[in-house]
């Protein structure tokens, strides 16, 4: 190992704590992200997960399987008890899908964030309910085909814009919020390290973008490339906010055309110029909002 790769690996505290090859689909960046997560966090954790695409099902780590409806509260219970018995050294970490985060588990997550619970919450955002067969969630992008948003005469894919969770979490006043993706490996590793520290003061939330070859109907070898393109097209800007101060961790000077990302995904194969424009507008609007909030 050399150069940047070696520098990244120097952040690993632990050997790989996941089993070799989990049950995740080939090419899934979430499997990679979970491996890296625990290499950085180490063993002194209790993991929390829900039914869904959660690779940490196959670990050698202590873990609690939770309901999708209340994972953040389940984390709270354990975290509070550990605090009471003086085990603040243990990190409670969740690796949870976008459905359980933005939809059915949102209420407990919002409340736990507002209470300032010391939890590390990672949202594995693959932009739909992938494990149950690609049903639309509120993280599904506008215009996308899913198995509950079809393309036909009366509708053309998902109608609404995404519910942009990272900013929603920021407005809860949590101690650390970041967006991340495996395409920017070192950025992710550094953010996990910061989150591990931030969790001593309150909630740390990492919104991890994980292209899903099955649900996006895209080539599996391109999943990392797509996660990089998502950043380069400003589709998924990389930023972090420590104590509410938002700053970009990757500035895109010359954005790549959104089409480069979209054309890899058959879920957007129907998209026409007008619809692509609408998606661009959503992205521009979000970027402008982030720019306004950013201190750097």
């Amino acid at each position: 190992m050399k150069g940047v790769a070696k520098r990244i690996a120097s952040h690993f505290q632990e050997e790989d704590l996941l089993s070799a090859a989990t049950g995740m689909c080939p090419g899934c960046p979430a499997e990679l992200a979970a491996r890296v997560l625990f290499k950085v966090l180490g063993k002194n954790v209790i993991t929390f997960r829900t039914p869904g695409c959660q690779p940490i099902f196959m670990t050698r780590l202590a873990g609690i399987p939770c309901l999708m409806t209340n994972i953040a509260s389940s984390m709270t219970g354990a975290r509070r008890y550990l605090h009471k018995i003086g085990r603040d050294d243990v990190t409670c970490v969740a690796f949870v899908g976008d459905g359980a985060t933005a939809d059915v588990g949102f209420q407990p997550l919002s409340a736990a964030a507002a209470r300032g619970e010391q939890l590390l919450y990672i949202c594995n955002d693959n932009e739909a309910y992938m494990n149950t067969g690609v049903q639309s969630s509120s993280a599904t992008p506008q215009g996308s085909w899913t198995s509950t948003t079809w393309v036909g005469d009366s509708h053309r894919g998902k109608g609404n814009e995404v519910k942009y969770m990272p900013l929603i979490m920021l407005m809860h006043g949590v101690s650390y919020v970041a967006t991340a993706t495996m395409g920017y490996y070192e950025d992710y590793v550094l953010k996990v390290e910061k989150a591990k520290e931030a969790v001593k003061h309150g909630m740390a939330y990492i919104h991890l973008h994980t292209p899903c070859s099955i649900g996006w109907r895209a080539p599996q070898e391109k999943s990392i490339e797509m996660s990089r393109l998502a950043v380069q097209t400003n589709y998924f800007p990389l930023w972090e906010a420590e104590d509410g101060k938002l700053k970009f961790t990757k500035r895109i000077k010359k954005p790549t055309s959104l089409n480069e990302l979209i054309k890899l995904q058959k879920r957007f194969s129907h998209i026409n110029d007008q619809e692509l424009d609408r998606l661009k507008q959503t992205i521009d609007k979000r970027l402008a909002l982030l720019e306004n909030l950013a201190v750097e």
Partner: peptide, 17 residues
Amino acid sequence: VEGENSSMGVCCSASLT
């Protein structure tokens, strides 16, 4: 908590630990 499904979540995990 903010609702009863969370009460049960808090209790279950605290008990499991």
